[in-house]
Design a protein around this nucleic acid. Sequence first.
DNA 1: GAATATTTAAACAAAG
DNA 2: GCTTTGTTTAAATATT
Length: 620
Amino acid sequence: MTAVVMCEASTKGGRKRVLDVLLMRLQRNCGNESSLGTRGTLGVGDVASHKSTEGSYRSIVSEIRGLGGSAVLSLTSESRGLRTSLENPEAECSQVTFTKLRSDKGVRERGNGVNECWGLPGLSLWASVLSNSNGKVLAWNLQDCDGERDRLLDEKHAVDLIESPLQAGGLDDLASSFSLCESCQLGRMGPVVMPPGKKVVDPSSGSLARALTPLYQDTEADDLSLSLSASLSRAQDEELTSLSWLHESTDLLTRMGHSGLRSVSPVQDGSAGNEPSPSPSSSPEPSFPCTGPSRKPPYSFSCLIFMAIEDAPSKRLPVKDIYGWILEHFPYFASAPTGWKNSVRHNLSLNKCFKKVDKDRSQSIGKGSLWSIDPDYRHNLIQALKKTPYQPYSPRLPKPSTSPSVSPQQYHSPPLWPGSALFGKNGGVLLQVPQRVIQHGSHVAAQGLFPVIRPLPLSPVSKRTTAVRSALGDFLSRAKHSVLIESPSNCDEQQEDHTYSSWQCPLSSSPSTCPTQDSSIPRTLSTELKLEQKDFPLDRRLGMWTKGHLQTPRDTLPLKKRRAENILVKEEEDEEEEDEEMKEAAGSLLHLAGVVRSSLSKKIIKVQKELKEEDGELEQ
DNA sequence: GAATATTTAAACAAAG
DNA sequence: GCTTTGTTTAAATATT
């Protein structure tokens, strides 16, 4: 598979550097055998230069086509001629149909005035970087090219990047962000149809390559896809493209109500040896080679401790090793004031989620005790990890704008802390938690553990409605998927394989070879993060279970609190009832989807048959 | 604005 | 005596 990354920067040098870093990162992540089909990177300046040298937009388009069949053209107000060409199919660009991806707003407008972006249909990911002549990233943007899902049009982040030298974090953040998109896309990307002669990289060999929608599509499949898409309404199509989570959603539905967590720790199941990526401890490189050392991880100490302990084979660690784990995975703390260790200890002591384990006399761990996760609270920690990470107080960062046009959710730090193992290597897994697929519907499919990838706020949709939409949407996606790969049966098997591995590496035949699984993050944890579905009220988040809180008997609480808790209990009961209703509704929908699918499949087969007949006639 | 969550700092005691 | 670990309290800040 060849992935095409479109990357456009305001300056030629900056763009090249961005691409270099992306390439380097991809190759590092995917191994030497993989390749990145990074192609046409024509930005504003390039368009202008091409125009002057070649005298024709057609040559530009041809070149783009030759490079990889994809392109993003950014237009400024000075590019009217090109825009006219793009808008007019009969004009010079008629050999390639461009579509308007979006009109740019936000950071890009303040950069170089680019206000429109055009690209070939199918382009799924587009990154733009504005950098100044000194190589500093001024602003950046990463988005799906359907024009509706900005990922990181985030002013706060842009400001952060302004403060980061290009090679000291800014670019790495950008590169990491592709992992973010990977996670967003994993669930809705089908197998790739490549044209003959194009280099194919083993899907399992490249996390980024696997994540990015390829731009080479077999013509026939493409046509079929288009014909299918054309038969659906825009809204349906939206669902189609974003709702391939049904295999997860249904899985989730079946799992709803399961209180127990399944443990498939690589250590325990013996699959760790298959991990392609070296463990952080054995790697000469830090787990987060791209960590911006000056930026603080968005995790609370509780989460950090939790991850550290979960990462231990014995699921218990002395404080010293917890320090070590955090240091190893979050180099920020190496240069941070030592107070963080105090905070760690403070958390261990105060947070009821953690408990001391009696020291085994045979073990010589030095001073102190071993710390483990209290099984009773493990679920809560998982939930806490899945919830919006607490944004640490950081007086150095400017406060978010109060502009009403920007959702507070957009101001969160990058998910999984760019450069973190969770983000950089395992982000595609952890971020994939389809927790709110059911709850909020398709648009939240991209939403996972961390909030930055949450789409823009949506109008509230009931759980039941969204469950229905989710189920139906995925059915449609599967239908399209089936067409694209022309092997519906296999597709079904894949989609209906609700195992962990199928979630983790939808395109990988072997979960053990999935490069996105970071060996430093316990598979147990990442799995359970996905399996855990029941959404807990915010007040049941991690902090609620600090020892002080829980040690307070309910009947000794003030009347107000007791009432609040009673309400909480009632709400939980209501939620359980609603869950049951959701299951029923989803079940009905699945049945309906099956019926519709059957009908659609027949139609598809018919279309295919007609096409073959036409081909036969043409040959004759 | 209140309640809550989290961080940070500090003091202190105990253990190694 | 020093360092590390563990507990506790309090204040500050962010989030809900």
